[in-house]
Design a protein around this nucleic acid. Structure first.
Lengths: 193, 193
DNA sequence: CCTACCGATCGGTAGG
DNA sequence: CCTACCGATCGGTAGG
């Protein structure tokens, strides 16, 4: 059996790879065809436009993060533990679905407006999950009373979203240790006054 | 006196604006010409190539950050205060030279290799300034002994580099308060065990 | 998924 | 800084 034909999912996965590596505008349909071993024009039997591809990749990224947050919040632990679960889930998405995560984080701005707004909303929803947990911790007295949940959330997400830019999966710091470092940093900042 | 001719500096400034807003690959030389009120081909009397422009903008960004760090470290205060000065300086660069800062942070990856390496080095040098201050704080006992200066530096810079993505200069949080929030968050995480 | 294209746009040059 | 271009490449279509 020779190599089978590509599916739409194959095309989207390859697009994620290239968009993450070179950016949306830095990737041509012919580049993408080459990556899959077919002609650029043949891609149009799988997608209707280049932007259609960006939408698909970014949307998958958004779903991964959203699903991760929902699972993390399944437990009814204390705020500190729920924050830990959110952090661990976020890192899993970034490390297990790097291309989608990177494209979601860095290339969504190239989307045109219906999709763009939808992704903006998804991002806000995700952010609210973190904010609610932090606000809970402040209310319960577990976190410091001066904490501004909105700003603290931005800071934690800033750390999480930057991971793709520096973390080396083959380096000395393994995944569990990475989660631990981030959690420790965040929880210390949130707990002490 | 009618509008004077554009200088090379005008061209670089306009390029910074467009690169920051739409990305390097999302900006064409004709877009840039339009921004300046001249033909795309006329830009070549000021620059030798499109990448020449990216190099110029990114290089200016790197210089701003480097200069800011040097000034911040002029004082011989305690580590916590020197970290504060580094943070304040970084925020000044981001808010006063937003286009250069954004292009430096987000578009440097589109550089080809001599310039690319040079920028990577500049980034590492800048990072080392932060790391040295944090390491000093650990040595002096001012910061918690478990602190890993390398990782703590990455976390602080992650927060700083994300500012351009969410901060609204016309919002409720003014510059001094922004610096204060970041510093408080960082110093708390670094100080407590 | 290929062949054969399309018009538009790209970065860039020559010669004023 | 303009005019007049260049070859290459772009996203995309028609018709198998």
């Amino acid at each position: 059996m020779v190599t089978a034909r590509n599916t739409r999912e194959d095309v989207i996965a390859a697009a994620g790879r290239l968009f993450a590596a070179r950016g949306y505008h830095g990737t041509s349909m012919r580049d993408l065809g080459r990556e899959l071993g077919l002609h650029g024009s043949s891609l149009y039997s799988h997608v209707t436009s280049k932007e259609d591809l960006l939408v698909a990749v970014v949307e998958r990224g958004a779903e991964r993060f959203e699903q991760s947050a929902e699972e993390a919040l399944g437990s009814s632990d204390a705020p500190a533990e729920r924050l830990r679960a959110l952090i661990a889930g976020h890192i899993d998405v970034v490390l297990d679905h790097t291309d989608e995560a990177k494209t979601f984080l860095d290339e969504a701005r190239s989307l045109e407006d219906p999709a763009r707004r939808h992704i903006r909303d998804a991002r806000n929803t995700y952010e609210k999950r973190f904010r609610a947990v932090i606000a809970d911790g402040v209310s319960s007295g577990e976190f410091a009373p001066e904490t501004d949940p909105k700003i603290a959330t931005i800071f934690v997400l800033s750390i999480l979203n930057a991971v793709e830019r520096w973390y080396d999966p083959d380096g000395e710091l393994d995944r569990a240790a990475l989660v631990d470092e981030i959690w420790q940093f965040a929880i210390t900042a949130l707990t002490s006054s």
